[in-house]
Every structure is written in structure tokens, then in C-alpha cells.
């Protein structure tokens, strides 16, 4: 069952087109990555899903119904710009946000205590938000958006600003929630996280869908156009006629081939140039590469990829 469906949704602000004819769906019980550069229309799309804005045209259903206040109570939202009342105690804030979602304050207090313990914040329950570090505030905010046990979670940049330990902690919580059958949408710029966590994804740019589908299909549709090569010697062989982008790491290089270039040609030139090749591997591009490729608009067959879902 689809938890979210967008059908030909458009939204304009004055003359600025924020979202243009966007359609995608999110299957229940999955983690879905909504990707795109800054200003691509992610936040506007999310706000329409949450019934903060109404679309100018098109149709949105959430949890099988048109968005409305009762639906809002079954959705948890972590906005990109986070905010807590500075002078309110952490525990009171959590109770406040939960009671707005219809949870009784007794129940909210119990759940808040559990979650604060789980995210290693239980000593901060009676502290004012202003006394917390940014990372801690972020975790409190995360608790606020799941305290009413929503079926659908929408997380806008959930990991930004978190240290690696907290990131890991939060990742595990999200994966646990998925195991409990909840659906999670998140938007991020960290493509590794999408590769690690997401089942499906949708990449949008300038308000339109660039590609979507399961992460595996998306990558497959781009073909094995990336070479991982570990060599010693000069890199003069990697000319622009062969290589679109060249990323150098400590012990190897990642090269994205120009369209239509055979990987063998690269190997041949490398050997000819006198470089000593220790490892040569043809792989699917990373999501990061796909993202850059699609957003910078150098990929003409993007529509093909979109069809490959």
C-alpha cells in the first residue's frame, strides 16, 4: 500500500514555480529518500504533504486519505529549521508538542522519559532548551516528532549537525522504526546515508522529478560507468576525452567515464603511459556521482533513468 501519493502536483509562489507536475509514491514500511539540491522544491513538497500549503493543481493523498488535521496526528515531522522554546524545560516542551498531537500529558511524560533515556538525554529533562548544545536540541526535536507514535515520519535533514556517535544512534532508531512497520521519508545531502538506509528515492531539481525508483535500480540504470583504479605513476593518461570527473583518494582514484567511452581504453592508456596498475575495477556510480550528474544537467538520458523504475 502506498502511504504517500503525489499526482501531478504543482505549486507556484507568485511567478516562481516551486514544484512543477511532480508525481511520486512512497510504499508503506519503507525508508524513502527525497533528494535534491537546495531550492529544488523539497521543503515545499513536504509542506504540501503536511497540508501546510495546498497545491495549486494535482492531488496528494497521505495514509490513503486527503490530507487533513486528523491525518496530521498520524504524521511526525522534523523540519529542516528546528526550533524549541528557549526558556521552556525539555520535558515540558516534549509534553506540549505531544499534546498538540492529541497525546494525554501523563502518557506524553512517560514516553518522553523513555526516549530521553534512549537518546542519552535523561539528565537534561528539567533543563531549559537554551542550556542544551545544538546536537542535544536536535535530539530533543527528534523525540518531539515521534512522541505521538506516528505511522509516517518526515525528516528533513535529520543528521545535519550531529556528531558521528549521535548520527549512529539516530540511524539505528530510524531503522528500528522501519522494522516496527513505520514509513520514513527523509531528505538529505549525504548520499552515503541514502545508500545505506533508503529503499527508494526520488531526486528532484527545479521542482521537477529527475529520477526515482529503488536505489538499486537507479544505480543500475546508470550502468557501470565508473572506474576505480589504484596505480603508481603519473596520471597524464586520464585525459578529458576519456574521463568526465576524477576524484583522487589516498590510495586510489575514482574516475567517471565520458559517455560512450570503453573502460578498456582507460586501462590501455594507463599501461601505455607507464603507470603501474595494482587494481582496476568497473563499478556502478555512487549516488553522489548520480546526484552531481543529474543536478549539473550533464546527463541527457536522465528521463530514461526515470523510466527504469
Amino acid at each position: 500500500m502506498n502511504v504517500i501519493e503525489l499526482r501531478n502536483v504543482s505549486k507556484k509562489f507568485d511567478s516562481f514555480v516551486a514544484v512543477n507536475d511532480l508525481s511520486f509514491e512512497v510504499k508503506g514500511g519503507t525508508i524513502f529518500g527525497l533528494l535534491g539540491p537546495n531550492g529544488a522544491g523539497k521543503t515545499t513538497s513536504i509542506r504540501m504533504i503536511l497540508d501546510i500549503f495546498a497545491p495549486d493543481s494535482g492531488e496528494i493523498t497521505v495514509l490513503g486519505e486527503h490530507v487533513s488535521s486528523p491525518i496530521q496526528q498520524r504524521v511526525g515531522y522534523l523540519p529542516e529549521e528546528r526550533g524549541l522554546y528557549k526558556k521552556m524545560k525539555v520535558g515540558e516542551q516534549l509534553t506540549f508538542f505531544a499534546s498538540l498531537k492529541g497525546v494525554s500529558s501523563r502518557e506524553a511524560q512517560l514516553r518522553a522519559y523513555d526516549w530521553l533515556e534512549k537518546l542519552q538525554l535523561k539528565d537534561w529533562k528539567d533543563k531549559k532548551a537554551i542550556d542544551l548544545s545544538k546536537g542535544m536540541q536536535q535530539k530533543v526535536q527528534f523525540i518531539a516528532c515521534i512522541l505521538h507514535e506516528p505511522e509516517l515520519l518526515i525528516l528533513d535533514e535529520p543528521f545535519s549537525g550531529l556528531d558521528p556517535v549521535s548520527t549512529e544512534l539516530l540511524k539505528n532508531v530510524i531503522i528500528d522504526l522501519k522494522k516496527q512497520g513505520k514509513t520514513v521519508i527523509f531528505s538529505t545531502h549525504q548520499m552515503e546515508q541514502v545508500e545505506q538506509m533508503c529503499d527508494e528515492m526520488c531526486l528532484i531539481n527545479h521542482g521537477t522529478k529527475v529520477l526515482s525508483g529503488s536505489v538499486r535500480d537507479v544505480k543500475r540504470s546508470f550502468g557501470r560507468n565508473t572506474v576505480i583504479i589504484d596505480y603508481e605513476g603519473p596520471d597524464s593518461f586520464a585525459g578529458e576525452d576519456l574521463i568526465k570527473r576524477h576524484k583522487r583518494f589516498a590510495n586510489h582514484s575514482e574516475m567517471v567515464l565520458q559517455d560512450g567511452v570503453d573502460a578498456q581504453e582507460v586501462l590501455k592508456r594507463a599501461v601505455e603511459s607507464g603507470a603501474r596498475v595494482n587494481r582496476f575495477e568497473l563499478v556502478e556510480p555512487s549516488l553522489n556521482e548520480i546526484f552531481i550528474e543529474c543536478v549539473t544537467g550533464k546527463k541527457p538520458e536522465q528521463s530514461l533513468a526515470a523510466k527504469g523504475e
Binding site: 503536511l50 501546510i52 488535521s69 496530521q72 496526528q73 526550533g83 524549541l84 522554546y85 508538542f97 526535536q141
Partner: peptide
């Protein structure tokens, strides 16, 4: 205060 601290962003997902 709510606007500056971005609390309104959180609130609008719960209330009109």
C-alpha cells in the same frame, strides 16, 4: 520569538 527560533516550522505540522 516563534518565527525567529523556527518553532513555527514545527507547530504548523500539528496545528493550523
Amino acid at each position: 520569538e516563534e518565527k525567529q527560533s523556527r518553532i513555527s516550522e514545527v507547530l504548523v505540522s500539528s496545528v493550523k
